[in-house]
């Protein structure tokens, strides 16, 4: 089940959406099987870090400018932003414990 704490980002507002605080963005697409595997991990992270971390998804089929801007050539890719700057990138699958450790470094 998807967490209601996960937001949906768009090309139009991406810069402002990521400009403040710690923001984790999951770049995914419907046809991407590994992305479906990662989704529950991202949902759990959103619940666990509610209030401390903004968690969002971006569908690369619908929004292509942002993935191009960050030179994403594979999904799933997770970008972690702090006050508008990319502070960590995770390409491919990751388990919850490793993702938590990455986030904790920047909290």
């Amino acid at each position: 089940m998807a967490s209601d704490k996960v937001k949906t980002f768009t090309d139009a507002t991406f810069a402002t959406d990521t400009s403040k605080g710690l923001v984790l963005v999951d770049f995914w697409a419907e046809w991407c099987a590994p992305c479906r595997r990662l989704a529950p991990v991202v949902d759990q992270i959103a619940d666990q870090y509610a209030g401390r971390l903004t968690v969002a998804k971006m569908d690369i089929d619908k929004h292509s400018q942002t993935p191009a801007q960050f030179m994403i050539r594979g999904i799933p890719t997770l970008l972690l932003f702090k006050d508008g700057k990319v502070v960590d990138t995770i390409v491919g699958l990751v388990d919850k414990a490793d993702l938590s450790r990455t986030i904790d470094k920047h909290l």
Binding site: P34, M71, R73, G74, T77, G92
Partner: peptide, 17 residues
């Protein structure tokens, strides 16, 4: 360069090419 143009999964990443 994984996720930056090197991939082991065409069905995942072919889209970008």
């Amino acid at each position: 360069l994984s996720g930056r143009g090197v991939s082991t999964c065409a069905t995942c990443d072919g889209f970008f090419f």
